[in-house]
Computed example of a mutant assay.
Amino acid sequence: MEQPDATRVWRPDWPCAVRHVLAQQRRGGGDPTLRLAALGERGQHWRASRTPEGPVTLAIESRDPAGEVRASAWGPGADWALDQLPDLLGAADDWLGFEARHPVVAEAWRRYPHVRLGRTARPFEALVPTIIEQKVTGKEAFAGFRALVLKYGEPAPGPGAAVGLHLQPTAEVVANIPSWAWLGLHIDPARSRALVTVARHAEALERIVRGSTSSDLRSSSKLDRAVRSVPGLGVWTSAEIRARALGDPDAVSFGDYHVAKDVGWALSGREFDDRELSDVLEPWRPHRGRVPLLLGEAGIRRPRRGHRASLRGHFPHV
């Protein structure tokens, strides 16, 4: 294998579940920007990204959940990616001030005390697949994102290409994809217009995130306003971006097909709508997003009824 441009050994001060935290960034099992080792097996996890310094391929390995993390990087963005590695794996996620408040949440937290939110600090890379996920099933969304990356992106640096890793297309490329080409990717005009718009303002979005932290409410608020100023983008899209790019613990995906129903069933025995979800989560502010996170970790979800294939992975309207 080609020698890396840079390496890093990092020892987290908590049992870091590397695969699990990286999976927060994955867009389906066929995501061409992220390759995870099989669950329960040792191996390297591969990620391709565009950093402020340029493209990078990142290989991450942790043989012991309580031990050190070894990472290698190839490409112009190698040093930046390795500097940002702890945040990517949840080191910036601060649970100070969080209170369980409910016995079900308390039990989930007791069982999963080391859950962390990772942060990529790359809002445009989070926006592209999130916009594609609007108004369609998970299967359609993941296929559309994969098609976009494979057609308009490029092979990842170093050995990334050999493992099938690709970079997302640049903002400039996305902004110049013609309308008819989006239809060939099975991405409708409403979503393609939003993608082109955010691509034209990608640098402004990056400036908001640059130098911020997971607990930086001002940056999160600015990013929220910037995302929601784009026609067709709303609270769900903003929350998904802030959770992934900033690791925002207060981001809640209102409008999601499952979140309100699952949280309501877990906490009260009945499904909630978004208004009820907002009311019940308010006491947890600024940690509202941790409640559905913990319940999801514990596998506490309402019983699924009907034909699962029509419900699984169905994304919201905004």
Rank of each mutant, 00 (worst) to 15 (best):
W14K: 00
D273M: 08
N176T: 13
L311I: 14
V56H: 06
W46H: 04
G118L: 05
D273Q: 02
V9K: 11
V259R: 09
K135H: 05
A17E: 15
K135V: 15
S192K: 04
L165Y: 10
P113K: 13
Q168T: 01
L148C: 01
Q84C: 08
Q3W: 11
G90I: 06
G118S: 08
S253A: 15
L150P: 00
A190S: 14
P169G: 09
E125G: 13
Q44T: 12
F98E: 02
A181V: 13
G306D: 07
P178S: 12
A106I: 10
E154F: 03
R304H: 13
G211H: 06
L195W: 05
A91W: 06
T51D: 02
G184V: 06
E240C: 13
A266K: 07
E53Y: 01
L167G: 00
L148K: 02
A71T: 04
G28T: 07
S238M: 02
M1G: 10
G30M: 06
A37L: 01
R111N: 11
R111D: 12
P283A: 13
V9H: 08
E282C: 09
P155L: 08
D273N: 15
V198C: 08
R35T: 01
R119S: 08
A204L: 05
D31L: 01
T197P: 00
L22T: 11
L233K: 07
H45A: 05
G29K: 10
D279I: 15
D188L: 14
A199Y: 01
L36F: 06
A309S: 11
L148G: 05
G255V: 01
S72W: 14
Q134E: 03
V280C: 09
A23W: 07
A260W: 02
G289S: 14
W265R: 03
E297L: 05
S62E: 06
A48F: 00
W236R: 00
R285S: 14
A78I: 10
L22F: 10
E41T: 04
A199P: 08
R242L: 08
M1L: 10
Q24S: 14
I208G: 09
G28Q: 06
A91D: 09
A226W: 14
W46S: 03
P12L: 02
A162N: 11
S268H: 12
A181H: 12
A121E: 07
W95F: 13
R110T: 11
W46T: 04
A23E: 04
K135N: 11
V18R: 00
D262F: 05
L217D: 04
F315Q: 15
F98N: 06
T57I: 10
E53N: 05
T57D: 04
R27W: 12
R270V: 12
R42M: 03
V291S: 09
S221A: 13
P15V: 07
G90F: 13
V163M: 00
G255R: 07
A92N: 14
E271M: 13
E125H: 00
P32W: 09
L183Y: 05
A108W: 00
A243L: 12
L183D: 08
A121D: 15
V18W: 02
G255S: 05
P292L: 01
G118Q: 11
H45E: 02
R11L: 15
R225F: 05
V198S: 04
L293N: 07
S310V: 15
R19Y: 08
D224E: 15
L195C: 04
H287R: 15
A38M: 08
V128H: 09
V174F: 06
S179G: 10
E154N: 00
Y152E: 02
